[in-house]
Design a protein around this nucleic acid. Sequence first.
RNA 1: GCGCCCGUAGCUCAGCCGGAUAGAGCGUCUGACUACGAAUCAGAAGGUCGGGAGUUCGAAUCUCUCCGGGCGCACCA
Length: 645
Amino acid sequence: MNLWKKALQKKIKTCLTPLFPLEENDLELTQPPSLKMGDVALPVAFRLAKKLKKAPYQIAQLALSPLQTIEEVSKIELAGGGYLNLFLDRKKFIKKIFEGSPKKDSGAEEKKIIIEHTNINPNKAAHIGHLRNAVLGDTLARCLKYKGEKVEVQNYIDDTGVQVVDVVFGFLELEKKKLPEIQSIPAQLDDYCWDLYTRVSQYLQEQPEAQAKRNIYLKKVEKGEGDEARIAEYISRQIVQAHLTTMKRLGITYDVLPCESSILHLKFWEKAFQLLKGKEAISLAQDGPNKGCWVMPLAQRTEKEKVIVRSDGTVTYVGKDIAYQLWKFGLLGLDFYYEPFIEENGHTIWISTDQPTSYQVHFGGGSKVYNVIDTRQSYLQDVVVESLRLLEYHQQAENSIHFSYEMVALSPQSLKELGLQPPPGEEEKNFYEVSGRRGLGIKANDFLDQLEIKAYQEVNRRNPDLPEKSKKEIARQIACGALRYFMLKYSRNSLIVFDFDEALNFEGETGPYLQYTYVRIQSIFRKLKERTKIRVENLISLDKIDHLTLSTLSPQEKDEMWELIYFASHLDEEVLHSLSTLELSNLAKFTFNLCQKFNAYYHKYPILAEKDEQIQQWRIITIYYLQKTLATALELMGLPLPEKM
RNA sequence: GCGCCCGUAGCUCAGCCGGAUAGAGCGUCUGACUACGAAUCAGAAGGUCGGGAGUUCGAAUCUCUCCGGGCGCACCA
């Protein structure tokens, strides 16, 4: 990673420590409003003003001459009543960029980071809400890996839950289908169950007495007994396959699929229960509404206490989640058995099983855990963390991060376009929550298909001569880019009200705009090679840069080139910032701004047509660096890099 | 009722550990393709930063309060 700012900060600290009583945050570096005013602003004088009881301007004056000794700094100006504005030595800076960072330590702060995301109930097709989760989780994983962390991605499969059982119930009771008939359904099972699940939900609501029967099924499925369990297993495995195929379209994959069935059969909960009882983290309620239940008190919350074990002895969802979280940290003293579920391009996705296998793989045992789950589950995530605290696993409680985000809802317009009716009594709302039960939602595959069709039309219009196969592949890449960027550009606690026009847009702040920018740079390099037989890589060397002088450029161009390079050099800092705030939209915005700046530059300064060799060289250097930076940023967000589009 | 989140341009959103002129995209209007790809670029119009009070040299940013919206608060998952 290129963290030149950190290095600069360190030098400033050395310069100023003898002069002032500095604290940790006093040396923050900020950005002046315009690069004309300086590359880096040091507001240290404002921080010290109160402490020293002196005017900021006076303090800044004192700091001026010591700072001038720093070699990367070419000039310092005092401005805005006390800002120290530093100008960097541009050529030195550019050379540093191309030197490549020397072998440093990896940047890893954790032994192993576990990210849990996607977690779609395997009883119906994935919808756009699930895509937000998966895109956020996958991008988080990419960024953490880039930083140097060891990352394990888990996708929890609730294969024995009520939602799957509802579909089992639907097949057996409503459709009168047994396993062989289900197996011979020609349609995609995830799509088929989308409708069936809606019907079952409605049926169970209208005939509450049927719920008793469903509950019997649930017990059987949990115990792994009978036809019900075999059907549940078949359905859930088939649908998980379908989900993985959907996610693959977006370049999203996983390391391991821990299943609830394994958690139950391998007695993870029983072990967790012992631990909780041992530390008196939970207690048996003697009276009150929860009499006979094992409950957990909640220190951090206003809600009273949470039932972990029901009075009939069965464990609630949170209970299982606590066991799972303990396992993730390696605190349970138990592990799953594993077998390969899918192998693709040399990568194996493993699935947990309760039967011993001969595979010597192990998962879990992380030192930090991110659970990517929407904000509606904050309360339950707090319960999980509280349980760690009560078990005196304070470090682990601290390192349990709920990566929360707002849901995706549907605009009234999009509902109309889908031919769906607003739920009764909700006709006037300005957005509608996605609901699997009510069949209210946009299937991920359907939407991706729409994006691909539109992208194909656009590609076909611009590049009619490309082979069919390429056009299809490019359309796929663009659809993926459009979707991923759409999911990333909003800050995480901003509710996305899904609108087709907006989501299908390929202009402005969209994924295809970013991809297009990349394609244009590629195209310049391709033409350069065609016309001059020169490969860009051969043009870029420290030696060559040494022989160039910035004064060959007009002052205007010099500034604009610098602005671009300087802006691009902040990528690594942006990634870390996005990680520390868990706000991946930062990275998205940064990349978009980078492209905007490039496109403006590109319009103004021709490269292939430039006659002056020195000027051309500088321009090539600039866009070469840009292309590298952009490629990295796009890969971090999972946007594919088309060669043409 | 209690807790959490949100309210910034016509629309969708950035900016929020206080700091130098409040920024993008979409939409609207004006311009730029005999081409390094117009999925682009240049420009214009558009803002009581929900209202009020407070803290401060300084508030979109912090505190309080009010108004408006959302989501949670199951022996569901």
